[in-house]
Amino acid sequence: MIALERVTKRFGSWTAVDAVSMTVEEGEFLVLVGPSGSGKSTLLRMMNRLIAPDSGIIRVDGADIAGLPPEALRRRMGYVIQSVGLFPHWTVERNIATVPDLLGWPRARVRDRVTELLELLKLDPRRFRTAYPHQLSGGQQQRVGVARALAAEPRVLLMDEPFSALDPITRGALQGEMAAIHRGTGTTIVFVTHDMDEALALADRVAVMDHGRLVQCAPPLAILTDPASGMVRDLVGREEWGLKRLAVETVARRVRPEPAIPPIPGPPVSSATPLHRALSEMVARGADRLPVVDGEGRPAGVLHLADLVRDPSAPPPVSPPVSPPVSPPVSP
């Protein structure tokens, strides 16, 4: 979908992005994570030509974007920024319709699309369609910002720290919304954040950047179990490492398909529950077993505490994070 080849960008003597090569697969949720100044935002902004690289090639669907008209390219890619940037003189409806209007969609189609998007982002169309941005809360504004980016059905959505300015509860809700939208639409998403927990929760693959370099690009579990460097390990955080490790897997991975005999008291947990929640549940109930049900509520087996501590399907135990095996940076 998007392929970067040795992309470099310098601002004066400072190298913001240093020879980064990577690919974003069709339908993938890729999260760029790194400390501030690591070049992740610059890299994102080069993907829709808001910034021009000094060297290297960026291809979208095989075409070098340097040869495409920048406006046409940007209209094909949704773009969400941290400060939202809604147009204060336009209603919510007109804000969301920005790109469809630029593309000259017929009026009725734009209207239907706005209704659809407001509902998708859980904003009541009757209440919000004619509202102005300043009448909205921060979370509602960013919901409109996401709707505006999705309006013209882009195949790629670029998101630059979209939820960093929101309070934790609103952020959590919007993260859930994004995961659902990604599952529902299959849109390719490139998402920038400095929050590793956000990255681990949302990503199909996490791309860790540091000082303009791509340090590691791997699925969340691999980032946790096999960090490419001390910097990645620091970013993940040494504290509560085990809980984070559990958080990237669901109950379905560790459940034993056996009947609950003897019967286990208490309500069952869903197989889609992240494992750290299941552990928390065990601690709260004082139980070492939990009954598990699948998505339709049918019994799916039993989750054992022992299986949380050691993954039954992975014979060699996970190396502790203190002395990980030294492995070269993973680059695709």
Partner: peptide, 27 residues
Amino acid sequence: VPDDVRQAARGMGMTPRQIFLRVELPL
């Protein structure tokens, strides 16, 4: 005119002329 508004307009794919006429001038 707030910078983020200008930035968003550019990121949405407005031409410099459209940014000026539709966003900056009205504001």
